[in-house]
């Protein structure tokens, strides 16, 4: 009998409970849907960027941002709160489940939550602006999966490293949110000063946006795929190592 990863099982049971709460769904999807309605309707067909309508530029960016927020928040909140507040992480840490299983469980759970949120945002975009707004190419789908993977692992690492619950808010406000605005989600980075543009271009969400707006594989998309893959591997190893040596 093939048994489900126990961490994934737990996270899915918790997610099922949470999604039944209107407030949770609302807080999770409020901002991407708000941006979609406001900018999509307000600027969508009137403004053109990079040879396409603004809405076709915006939707892939919003999907990358939604993937980032949801995958990161699931593992960061679950692990951080579980360690420091509810202490529900402790039974996991003193169980014989392998540390690889723990990392994999949060990785899968983060990907699934990212997928659910992205599906809802994509469905809204499809209804409002048609299928042309959706990034359905192979590089885009690979980029979305890597984005979810990286941020789920980064969330796990953050949840393991934070010393205080307020640290999650600090990370969200000072890293995640600025990254959403300065990674080419809402506007291209071309107009930024050159030095800043090059630095911002290295951010994981910038790589994700590049992939989600690609229709075919090119040297640029391959570079982005390699960067995101390497970031995933680094985060995976860091999370595993930290779990292996974890102590209170």
């Amino acid at each position: 009998m093939v048994s489900i990863n126990p961490i994934l099982h737990r996270e899915m049971l918790l997610l099922r409970k949470k999604t039944l709460r209107l407030g949770y769904l609302f807080s999770t999807l409020l901002f991407p849907l708000l941006y979609l309605f406001a900018f999509g309707w307000g600027l969508g067909s009137k403004v053109h960027l990079n040879g396409t309508t603004y809405v076709n530029f915006l939707v892939p960016g919003l999907l990358a941002m939604t993937a980032m927020n949801n995958s990161f928040n699931l593992s960061a909140a679950s692990v951080g709160m579980g360690r420091l507040f509810s202490r529900t992480m402790q039974p996991i840490l003193i169980s014989p489940v392998s540390r690889f299983s723990i990392v994999n469980g949060y990785l899968y759970a983060g990907i699934i939550r990212g997928m659910i949120a992205c599906t809802i945002v994509a469905a809204a975009a499809l209804l409002l602006f048609g299928s042309s707004s959706l990034p359905l190419s192979l590089p885009a789908l690979a980029g979305l999966l890597l984005t979810m993977s990286f941020f789920a692992l980064a969330g796990l690492l953050a949840g393991l490293l934070i010393k205080d619950l307020e640290d999650i808010a600090v990370i969200t406000n000072f890293i995640i949110m600025p990254m959403a605005f300065f990674s080419g989600t809402f506007f291209p980075l071309d107009n930024m000063p050159a030095a800043l543009r090059n630095s911002l271009g290295l951010l994981p969400l910038s790589q994700a946006n590049l992939l989600l707006r690609s229709h075919t594989f090119s040297s640029g998309t391959l570079y982005a795929l390699i960067v995101l893959s390497l970031l995933c591997i680094c985060c995976y190893l860091a999370a595993y190592t930290h779990l292996h040596h974890y102590q209170e």
Partner: peptide, 24 residues
């Protein structure tokens, strides 16, 4: 443990099923 570190949002049965999974 000293603290009641149950998954409070889950049912009694689900709490035990998750734990059974952790111990395979």
């Amino acid at each position: 443990p000293q603290e009641r570190n149950l998954d409070l949002e889950l049912t009694v049965q689900d709490n035990l099923m998750v734990y059974a999974g952790l111990y395979q």
